[in-house]
């Protein structure tokens, strides 16, 4: 009898101890497991690597590439091989944030600083001579309208050229008139 009553607290102690032991055992690998994951997260994916792969396989989503690089620790060769083996890359979970800065964006915005100012259209299309003559002639609408498409290659080219020039000259004339009207309006 005494042995039996003694057994129950013993059993309880044993159960509590074993629960604690199991919990301790289960909890132990968890931090050990999260630590490498945390280290993984700290792997900064180089946007240049994403670009590199993206250039090789333009069909791939940049986010998928970033996710794959993230998982293999930024190994470009590994990801490339994975793509080449067939199948695509796994889609990242929605919570995954691909590295935001797109270096193409910054380089694009950075380059034009040195860019010289564009020449105006009159210079660009060599229209200064036509500027004077055209404004003296009657309205261009009166000229017979040539058909826009021709079987002859050079004629086609000439037609396109002419339509371009007309478009620019018409815009220039219109703006000139507007300017003149505005000036006379202010002086009057």
């Amino acid at each position: 009898m005494a042995e039996q009553t003694l057994n129950i607290p013993q059993l309880l102690v044993f159960i509590i101890v074993s629960i604690l032991a199991i919990r301790w055992y289960l909890a132990k690998p968890a931090p050990a497991g999260t630590r490498p994951a945390g280290a993984n997260r700290a792997v900064r994916i180089n946007p240049a690597h994403i670009d590199q792969i993206s250039n090789m396989f333009p069909q791939l989503n940049r986010r998928d590439i970033a996710w794959d690089l993230q998982r293999n620790g930024g190994n470009v060769a590994n990801t490339t091989e994975r793509v080449l083996r067939g199948g695509g890359l796994d889609a990242p979970p929605p919570s995954f944030n691909a590295p935001a800065p797109r270096p193409t964006l910054t380089s694009r915005t950075a380059t034009p600083v040195a860019k010289p100012s564009q020449p105006d259209l009159i210079t660009r299309y060599n229209l200064s001579s036509k500027l004077a003559t055209k404004s003296e002639t009657a309205t261009p609408e009166e000229q017979p309208k040539q058909k826009a498409w021709s079987q002859d290659r050079t004629e086609r080219q000439a037609n396109l050229q002419r339509r371009r020039e007309e478009m620019i000259l018409a815009a220039r004339r219109k703006l000139e008139e507007k300017e003149k009207a505005k000036n006379s309006g202010t002086s009057a």
Binding site: N61, R62, R108, V113, K115, Q118
Partner: peptide, 25 residues
């Protein structure tokens, strides 16, 4: 020179119709 929110200072046009379906981070 086109001064516009969707045109890069070098003149490059950034508009959805010029983007392939895959390239949309």
């Amino acid at each position: 020179d086109v001064w516009h929110p969707n045109v890069y200072p070098n003149g490059q046009v950034c508009i959805s119709i010029l983007h392939p379906p895959g390239d949309d981070p």
